[in-house]
Design a protein around this nucleic acid. Structure first.
Lengths: 226, 226
DNA sequence: TCATATATAATTGGCGCCAATCTGCAAGGG
DNA sequence: CCCTTGCAGATTGGCGCCAATTATATATGA
């Protein structure tokens, strides 16, 4: 499982777990057992505990006192709030993006878009999650404010994680790809209105097939299994 | 030093350290030695490490591999970014606050304001920091979005921590108090414009006596001491 | 057959220990 | 007198161990 090799094992493992959760390897509600992770990733249980502690601080996972750590489950209401928060912040930082965007920054975004296109063909959950985040991160960086970028990045990661078992939701990827192209094009031709619309549609896409039925959520419910 | 008594020692210690940093007991750049903290707060070094790890994830402190953890130092540029981020987000969530504010929520804010008034007389750094944060937290809760509140709370805590050695900056407290009253009043009489102005002034107050000279920053510079 | 009580296994929680690393100081050489 | 080198003290890093707690399986009785 790709040995650590990095100097900082803790940060490396944390990133692996993050990817694993985004990619569907660790579904919401599943327990993260320390021994298993230690052996699986070739690190000591001490390192595992540190990484879990840090992820718990970010509320990606929750800590149940004598049970362990498990991937946090986001309710419908919480996901609505995350989406709303992203909408509020991203719309508000839109003027900053328009005013401060640089050629090199746009080039980064284009490159990230290409990476996402390539990952879209493979339909690999982790690759999709990673390149998708990279694209949005590149976009957020255009506003030239690291603090703002950090906030919006966190919101996106939490929100997407709760969006379902994994990415490859049929035509969802194709749609996302189209919207990404739309956003980048709007940025390049200096069209704030189009960008605003594209962001709005991109963020609220998941809600369309929601209120009708909860068909997208798989029936697994490992809580209260007694 | 007020024994733990809580069931979760780690969370308790983390809050203590947070308060200590906000209140000036642990200035920016100072090292947080593990066994010193363990003895001082009556917990094991294991708990201390966990708390430090979590604070490091929040970027309140930084971890230097074989040196330890130290209170993070915020540069002028980073503080500018934090302030800008707060401005962007708080202005953007202003409509939400106006639309969703409830009588009970406003009552909470009033109560928090009273607590801050009381702390303002004592000039105790930690009490000031705590009640100030409580007031702003109550305000942020009026928007009815926990995710947004979380983001803005984090930005405020980081920004204030870098604002200087401590709170009691002469008339700064009196001015803050007046601005708090102004914000609450604007909210109660449904005046978005006044609220926007009050927030703007409140957040940018520290910059006024900045560009002239760096007199507010004490001359301590423990970095690059070789 | 079902509910309850008991024993067993699995997992986490916490702590002490020792090695690795860094800092500061002192001794030696130019 | 100053720079370099080596040494001692202090601090962190990592790990194994064992107790505490919980879940699972088994046995017992109505």
């Amino acid at each position: 499982m790709t040995e650590p090799t990095h100097s900082n094992e803790l940060a490396w493992l944390q990133e692996q777990l993050r990817l694993g959760m985004s990619g569907g390897r660790f579904p919401a509600g599943s327990w993260l057992r320390q021994d298993a992770l230690a052996e699986q990733y070739g690190v000591s249980r001490f390192v595992v505990r540190g990484a879990l502690e840090r992820l718990a601080e970010l509320e990606s996972i929750e800590h149940v006192p004598n049970r362990g750590y498990r991937v946090r489950h986001w309710s419908l209401e919480e996901r609505r709030e995350l989406t709303e928060a992203r909408l509020v912040i991203e719309q508000a930082m839109l003027p900053l993006m328009m005013a401060r965007k640089t050629p090199t920054g746009l080039a980064e975004a284009r490159r990230a878009l290409h990476d996402f296109e390539r990952a879209a063909e493979s339909l690999d959950g982790e690759a999709l999650a990673m390149t998708n985040h990279a694209f949005h991160r590149a976009l957020a960086d255009l506003a030239g404010n690291a603090a703002l970028a950090r906030q919006v990045n966190w919101l996106r990661e939490q929100g997407l994680r709760g969006a379902g078992p994994g990415w490859p939701k049929a035509g969802g990827v194709a749609r996302s790809l189209a919207e990404h192209r739309e956003m980048l094009a709007a940025l390049e031709r200096n069209d704030p209105v189009a960008l605003q619309g594209a962001i709005q549609r991109h963020l609220t896409a998941w809600q369309e097939r929601m209120p009708t039925a909860d068909s997208s959520a798989r029936p697994t419910e490992e809580r209260a299994s007694h």
